[in-house]
């Protein structure tokens, strides 16, 4: 198929960016979206133009590195996939595809489609861990039974890949699904109880400091999340925060 691409080009964080049109031809429907981008870049290199910078790594939907906003949707039109798992069979010959970076105040553009998501890391530094030394001399792994239900729910929350689609798709650029997922994982496990109060307070404080917006329960994040992280995690985080506020 032949396609027109409208792509956000921006030299660096200080320079103003703009949409630029490109044409690609003979795109196979079996290609992944990023392989289509590879074809474009090879074409640009061979004509002496600068290729489009975009983040990507594992190309199997688990590292969370790829991050494009395609035709107005984070990770494009398919559901439950990251951009690297999106296939060209989702598009038709002659389509015009608009490709932008994930946009949010807390995700400044570095170059073209590459954004800086280090704000996510800083939220994790504020409390996304259990303070146990890695000595190996902890109690036996089976010493504390954990109900299968809680363990499975903690796993569902922990499956977040930190891609930032929730933020990019939210009209308020809220990171509450991301933070809620981490808070939930630990809140559901006995190991996480000791530090629960400080954890949720510190992580939420850092989230606010980074300039993420608030949640207004639209639910777009849940729909766009490639891993299907549930809104329940936001509710659980709010409960944890309320508990923590009363405790102190």
């Amino acid at each position: 198929m032949n396609l027109t691409l409208k792509i956000w080009r921006q030299k660096d964080s200080k320079t103003k960016g703009q949409m630029v049109d490109y044409k690609v031809t003979d795109i196979s429907e079996h290609m992944s979206f990023l392989e289509m981008m590879d074809v474009l870049n090879e074409q640009l290199i061979n004509t002496g133009e600068e290729p489009v910078a975009f983040d990507h790594d594992c190309r199997e939907g688990i590292c969370g590195m790829c991050s494009m906003y395609i035709n107005g949707e984070a990770h494009g039109p398919d559901r439950g996939v990251t951009t690297c798992q999106l296939h060209m069979r989702m598009f038709k010959d002659g389509d015009t595809i608009t490709i932008e970076p994930f946009r949010a105040k807390a995700f400044p553009v570095i170059k073209d489609l590459v954004v800086d998501r280090s704000s996510f890391d800083r939220i994790q530094h504020a409390g996304g861990y259990i303070s146990v030394n890695t000595s190996g001399n902890t109690q036996d792994a089976n010493a504390t039974p954990i109900s299968k239900h809680d363990a499975d729910e903690a796993m569902d929350a922990a499956t977040c890949i930190g891609c930032g689609a929730c933020v990019a798709t939210c009209k308020n650029s809220s990171a509450m699904l991301f933070v809620g997922a981490k808070v939930s994982q630990y809140a559901l496990l006995p190991q996480g109880q000791v530090e629960a109060t400080d954890r949720v307070k510190n992580m939420v404080a850092q989230m606010d400091l980074e300039g993420f917006g608030n949640c207004s329960n639209t639910g777009a994040c849940e729909i766009e999340c490639p891993k299907g992280i549930s809104l329940e995690n936001i509710a659980r985080m709010n409960r944890e925060l309320l508990k923590a506020t009363f405790k102190s």
Partner: peptide
């Protein structure tokens, strides 16, 4: 042991182990 202490959600059976 270490990973469980860190909160890694390994699969469990119905008895919680």
């Amino acid at each position: 042991d270490q990973c469980v202490a860190q909160g890694v959600p390994f699969a469990r059976d119905y008895g919680g182990l």
